[in-house]
Write a protein that binds this DNA or RNA. Structure first.
Length: 276
DNA sequence: GTGCCTGTTACCTC
DNA sequence: AGAGGTAACAGGCA
């Protein structure tokens, strides 16, 4: 569920919540398998007494730098963070709760239990596996070109692979491919220079729009994306193809279709995005 | 009730 | 190498 724009929105809200400088006084885990690394008792013990230094994002990971360790949080499908002064469960799906020295609590709720927390002493243990940040200066046309020419996979699978470009998920992959007028099943190494240039433009464009709109919240169930403050995103109003099968393409008015590509529900305009 | 769908990722086999 | 299947899970929906 949360992709780069949603995670970015969460990280910004965490930073606005004056968590920096707070010390963790207790950690409670209600679903053991949320903690991926290290073992549960060590996770709880090691967190106690550590001060929150910096909060940032890399790919779809939330990074919380502590006095001695680094805490990584991956929300996967339904993970959410919330801050409260309430020591009781904020939902029946609460999986982890950090108690802070100012009386507040950082709650992690996760309906589907796919979310993962990692407490690491080495900063790069997990993050080294990630590809380029789409908003970094390393993400250049040449870099994209070089990555594409070495991949014979479909472009959709390429975009979803976090080892090339970090932070793109199913929503923004479909949106970027529509923007660049590329069929999701095209092989990465067969894109023309013009298509690569369009894709290079489209990726930061759709992600930036997502960030500006504070993320995408589809539907109304609570399984969808909500920010730390419990706010819905606005980007669903700007989506061109994602979950819009049967509606008209905003560019050419052909009906948008849904197919299966790279094992995922995939939305496209059959007129704008031809698989030649 | 049944069966299929879902925004992520890891792991397996072919 | 990469595609496809499955799994981890819970719930929405037709």
């Amino acid at each position: 569920m949360p992709e780069l724009p949603e995670v970015e929105t969460i990280v910004r809200e965490l930073n606005e919540s004056q968590l920096i400088g707070r010390t963790i006084v207790e950690a409670k885990v209600f679903w053991a398998r949320t903690v991926a690394i290290p073992k549960l008792h060590e996770f709880c013990d090691r967190l106690i007494g550590q001060k929150i230094k910096i909060i940032l994002r890399r790919g779809k990971y939330i990074i919380i730098e502590l006095s001695r360790d680094v805490l990584l949080i991956h929300l996967r499908m339904t993970g959410k963070l919330a801050i409260s002064k309430n020591p009781q469960a904020i939902s029946s799906h609460e999986r982890v709760r950090l108690h802070l020295d100012d009386g507040r609590y950082l709650h992690f709720e996760d309906q589907r239990k796919f979310g993962k927390w990692y407490l690491l002493s080495d900063y790069n243990e997990k993050l080294d596996e990630l590809g380029l940040e789409p908003f970094s200066k390393e993400f250049t046309l040449k870099a994209l070109k070089d990555m594409l020419k070495n991949s014979s996979r479909s472009i959709k699978a390429f975009l979803l692979d976090q080892q090339y470009i970090a932070g793109i998920g199913n929503i923004y992959a479909d949106e970027a491919l529509w923007e660049a007028k590329i069929h999701p099943n095209r092989k990465a190494d067969t894109l023309t220079p013009k298509e690569i240039a369009e894709l290079f433009r489209a990726i930061p464009l759709v992600l930036k729009q997502g960030v500006n709109n504070m993320g995408t919240t589809l539907g109304s169930s609570k399984a969808n994306y909500y920010s730390v403050a419990g706010r819905r995103g606005e980007n669903q109003l700007q989506l061109k193809v994602f979950r819009r099968e049967g509606f008209s393409c905003p560019r050419c008015h052909t009906k948008i279709i849904k197919i299966k590509a790279a094992q995922r529900g995939t939305h496209l305009c059959p007129h704008c995005q031809k698989n030649l």
